[in-house]
Structure formats: C-alpha cells, structure tokens
Amino acid sequence: MAVEVRIPTILRPYTDGAKVVQGDGATIADLLGDLDGRHPGIRERLVDEAGLRRFINVYLNDEDVRFLDGLGTALADGDSITILPAVAGG
C-alpha cells in the first residue's frame, strides 16, 4: 500500500530534510521496514524490542495507532501517516 509519511523535525536528518516521504507496506510494521530501506537508521529511532517507543506517536490519518492495532495496524493505499515525538517530560 502506497502511503504518505510526515516526518518530524528531529528525524529529518534521515530524510535529507524532507517533511513528507513516500512509503509502502501492508501494516505499520512493514512500512517502518520499508522506510528504513529508503532512509537507513530511521526505524531504530521509532521502535525497540518491545514495539513502538514510549515517546513516539504514530498516527494513521487522525488516529493514534496505539488505539488501533499498534504496529499491526493495516494500511490502505493513500493513507496518511504522521510521526510525532511526544511532548513530555518530568
């Protein structure tokens, strides 16, 4: 499934500064693998052994994928994915 992915400022060094990149995959997990092929190192910033990193939010269109099926969330052609680091602290 061909989708559009919005990249936050802090990860743009991986995308040569691009705010929006193209990606492909049947699920979010597939998509992250595909993105890592095109922009090596980016996947590591988003997931760890346990899944999506605690301070990274990934949205499918308007929904946080944590409230869908997480990394297993299915994608359709034309979906829009937004990656945003949490704004958080202590």
């Binding site: 939010n57 949205y59 946080d64 945003l84 949490a86 704004v87």
Partner: peptide
C-alpha cells in the same frame, strides 16, 4: 505529556 490527539 501533551495528549496524543491534542498533539496531532
């Protein structure tokens, strides 16, 4: 922490 929906 900003709420995730508010953040988007």
């Amino acid at each position: 922490e900003f709420d995730s929906v508010d953040l988007l």
